[in-house]
Amino acid sequence: MSDSTSLYVDGDSLLHRLDPRSKLALSLALFVPAYVFGRPEYIAIPLVVAFAGLLAGGGWRNLKRIWFILVALFVVGLVLWPNFVEPSGPTLVDAGPILLTLDQLLFALGRSLRIATFVVTGLAYISTTANEELVRGMRGLGIPYAFCFAVGTALRLFPTFLGAAGTVRQAQEARGLDLSASNPIERIRNFVPLLIPVFMTAFRNVETQSMALEARGFDTRRERTFYRESAFAVRDWAAVALAVAVVVGAVALSSTGVGTF
């Protein structure tokens, strides 16, 4: 997929060559430690690994695209969480209503690192997995074909509708549509002339597309055969084994109190 809306980066890295299911297992192997540990120094480990995976998969340009979101999520977590944790440990800041202790800060830092780990891991997965592979992976996991077909079709239609939405926006703004009204209700209402054309463009062809599918023998009730079957290579089994080992190890360690508050 080469359209600019996709975050997939074409490449031949090890992550690119892995089956989407084994990549999912590896993602879980980063999610689980980030979840079961609470101390920031422990959560930093899966975050560093996720960053390394992202860079190895050529996802640097994607990181540049979303760095603002990542930083915003990190900062919001860092600011929010101290307000939801009982103050304990040495005091770092005590200025009027603002009280921040070392434990509160470490707790909040751990939560923000967890958010960052989840986002970077997801980004590494998306950067190295094409849309078609995503759908193939879902099918390989036993998800019903009709659902996978709907996801695959939506992924194909999405860039078209995204383009249509941009065109409609430019056209309506050229006609004087103001999307910067100061009254929030007024601003939301001004989106009506944008949504109607996008909406109607999308649904106009549902009937003919359905007929075209059925004319080609589309039938979700019968057992399907596929030209390209997913094959789990040795490297995929190795990735799954590694993921299982990491998950089991992280859960075992955290249950003994390692890396937790």
């Binding site: 999405f158 509708f161 979700t220």
Partner: peptide, 23 residues
């Protein structure tokens, strides 16, 4: 088939409007 196509189109439209339009 039409319900499956509707599912796909709803998904695509929802995503296409979710991303670029923030009021």
């Amino acid at each position: 088939t039409r319900m499956i196509m509707l599912t796909a189109v709803v998904a695509a439209v929802y995503a296409a409007v979710l991303i670029p339009f923030n009021a």
